[in-house]
Structure formats: structure tokens, C-alpha cells
Design a protein around this nucleic acid. Structure first.
Lengths: 206, 206
DNA sequence: GGATTAACGCGAACTTGCTCGCGTTTATCT
DNA sequence: AGATAAACGCGAGCAAGTTCGCGTTAATCC
């Protein structure tokens, strides 16, 4: 029984590769903790991780690729709740997001990815796709609520989830202040009230 | 009667300086129209404006300074309405913002300033101060509404205005899609409903 | 109108970011 | 275990981006 088998010429995920990958991502995350994106440079990552500069450029193309991969790597940290009621879910998720962005490194990471997207088209599509996917997944929460009759049937699930997330990114990217639990409560309360009022209904649902 | 006077050694705002300034800012704005921030470089601005590269670095320090000044320069484009009712004001302002960000160059500019803030601490404080000031000004709208009894007395005006603006920046920076008028309507409706529900009240006002 | 000096143009020098070729290490397969 | 070929380390080399000194232009003041 052969162990399975790449046609030699494929990527090679095992052992060393995974080890350096982890070392590099750890280094990026740590660097984001001290000085944020402003001082994050390929050279510093190379020194901190012990991985050679050329290797970093080969595997990740630049800072943009690095921060993007780190973001997708850390995406699973915020699980989607299922409390039985939509307002309950909204508050639970908002609390989780607020806790997530309570860590300054996470705020710096978001900032970094957005900055990267502004510079590199590839990072831009990566960012868009990433959030689009997460919005879709979170939309299931809203769909359950609609099925329970908590919201109008023509409510746009993604729009609701976007409304829940928006205050966090406004706080982080525009106001540039820490994220406190109050922001989460406010976002959940606001989103729930707005959704009930029909702010996210599709224009005269077909 | 002497014409009034600088102690020689001061800045010199007149004639040529203002002309080159305008040429440069125009060039930046035009460059943002083609290729956005991704292709915006000091050299391109220099060529397009006809102003020498060294001059750009001397006066603006770098791209960060350029886009920041352009932002403050274009800030007056969105006037604050006074329709007599708060929901009327919210919708009017949201419409104006939506129209403002209907221009791709404005979206690119915001993107550029946020990216600049991520890299340069000076740009970061400039961005924060800029929006803080505008939020304060717009807060007057909400204060009038509170005085009219349209909202609870302990409603935080800035929080309301932040809620109104947040969806636009989420759309621009995270979702990375165009801003359509519907987004403005949704934002205004949502903010009004949420504010009425008390989502922006200060926690047990002292 | 003439003197003073900020602001600008110009090109060279310098720094930083990034790429390339080659030899070495280490997964992976037979 | 031995062979094959990714993935990596290393340093040189390249190409941006950025700064500097100096001469010139043109506001501002007398």
C-alpha cells in the first residue's frame, strides 16, 4: 500500500515548510503587537522568525501576502452562535467580535490588510472574498430568524450582518480608538432595532 | 498704511505657492481616478503636476501628507442639512454622503488616507482628528433633535453620527464595492430606528 | 524699482526595498 | 537506504524611493 503521492512537481506541505510558515506568521503577529503595521517590514519579520528574507519574498510576494494569509489563518477564532433567537445571536456574535478586536494586534491586522488591499489588487480581491464568504456564513443566522418569523421575509441577511460589523471597522479604521464591549452591545441593539424597522429589506421584494 | 506683513521668516502663501499647491492636489485627485491608490506614486504626481519631485517631498513629506491634505481640502463638499426634523436631516445627510462617495475618486481617497494612517503615525492622528471634528459638527444635528424631544436626552450625538457613517466605510474599505443611493437610505433608516430604540444612549446617564 | 528671501528646479548621491543565481538542506518516493 | 526535487540560506546585484546641496525664479517688503 503506497502512502499516496503527489506527482512530483507539486507543492510540498509537510514538515519543514509548515514549521517555517508558522514561525513567520507568529513573527508577523508579534510584530503587529509592537508598533503595528507602521513598523512592520519584511526585514524585521525575517530577523524575528529566523527565516531568510528571500524566502519570505518567494513564498508571500511581500507584506500584503503575509498579512492576508495571517488574516485567513485567524478567521476561525470567532464562532457563529446559535442561541435560539435572532437578537440573542446578534448580541452573542457582537460580544465575540468585540472580544476579538479587544486585542490590539487584531486591530492592527485589519488595518494592515486594508492598507495592503489599497496597494495590491491581489490583496484587495482576497480581502473582498474573505469578508464576502464570512458574511454569507453569518447570514445563516439571519435566515434562521426570518424562518422563525422574527424579521420580514424580504430582509437581506448579508445586509444585516454588514450592519452588525460596520461599527467595529469604523471604530478601528476611522476613529482609530480601542474596541470596548459597549460597542458590541450598541451594535447588536442597533442592528436588531434597524432590522425590525425594515431598514435591510430588499427594495420591494420581487 | 502698510499692507500688513509677515515678520520675514514666516510662511509665504501667495501667488506661486498656491498655484503649485493646487496643481499638485489636482494631480493627486486625477491619479486617484485612474488606478486608485495602488498606482499613486510621488513620481507620477510630479510628472502630472509639472512640479518637481524634490518639491513634493519638501512640502508634503510623502504620499501620506499629500492624501491627507487633499482630504481636508475636499471636506467641505458635504454640507450639514437642517430640515426641521432629525429623520429628515439623517436622510438628507445620508443622501449627500452617498452622492459624495458615488465618485470613485472619493472612495480611493478614503482608502488612501486609511492606508497612509496605517503607515504613518502623523497621518493617523490627522485622520482621527479630522473625523472627530466632523463628527462633533454633525452632532449638532442630533442635539437639535434631542432638544425637540425626538430622542432620549441621554443619547450620544457622536455615536449616532458614527452609526450613520459606518456603513459607507464598511462598504468602501471592507466590502470594496461602489456606494449606491440605496446604501444611504438604508443607513439613515437604520440609524433613526436604532437611535429611537435607545441603542446610542450613554450607559445610565449620570 | 530694487533688495531680500521663501519656494522651486535640477541632478547627484544615498538609502531602502526587492530580485536573482547558485549551492545546501530536507521532505518525499522508490 | 538511496535518489529526486522542493524549499531554504546566502550574498551579490538591481531598481526603486528618498534626501541633499546649490543655483534660479518670483513673491514680498522697503
Amino acid at each position: 500500500m503506497t502512502t499516496a503521492h503527489h506527482p512530483p512537481g507539486e507543492t510540498r506541505p509537510g514538515g519543514r515548510t509548515a514549521r517555517t510558515r508558522q514561525a513567520v506568521l507568529d513573527a508577523v503577529f508579534a510584530e503587529l503587537g509592537e508598533g503595528g503595521f507602521a513598523t512592520l517590514t519584511m526585514e524585521r519579520v525575517a530577523q524575528r522568525s529566523g527565516v531568510h528574507l528571500a524566502t519570505l519574498y518567494r513564498r508571500w510576494r511581500g507584506i500584503e501576502g503575509l498579512v492576508c494569509e495571517l488574516l485567513t489563518d485567524l478567521s476561525g477564532s470567532v464562532p457563529l452562535p446559535d442561541t435560539g433567537t435572532l437578537p440573542g445571536d446578534l448580541h452573542a456574535l457582537a460580544r465575540a467580535i468585540a472580544a476579538f478586536y479587544g486585542d490590539p494586534r487584531m486591530r492592527s491586522l485589519i488595518e494592515a490588510v486594508v492598507a495592503a488591499a489599497a496597494r495590491d489588487p491581489q490583496a484587495a480581491t482576497a480581502l473582498r472574498d474573505f469578508f464576502d464568504e464570512r458574511l454569507g456564513l453569518a447570514g445563516a443566522m439571519v435566515e434562521r430568524g426570518i424562518a422563525r418569523g422574527e424579521l420580514p421575509a424580504d430582509t437581506d441577511p448579508k445586509a444585516v450582518m454588514a450592519a452588525l460589523g460596520a461599527p467595529f471597522y469604523y471604530r478601528i479604521l476611522i476613529e482609530r480608538h480601542p474596541v470596548d464591549p459597549d460597542l458590541g452591545e450598541s451594535a447588536a441593539t442597533a442592528t436588531w432595532a434597524a432590522a425590525q424597522a425594515g431598514a435591510y429589506r430588499t427594495k420591494n421584494g420581487a
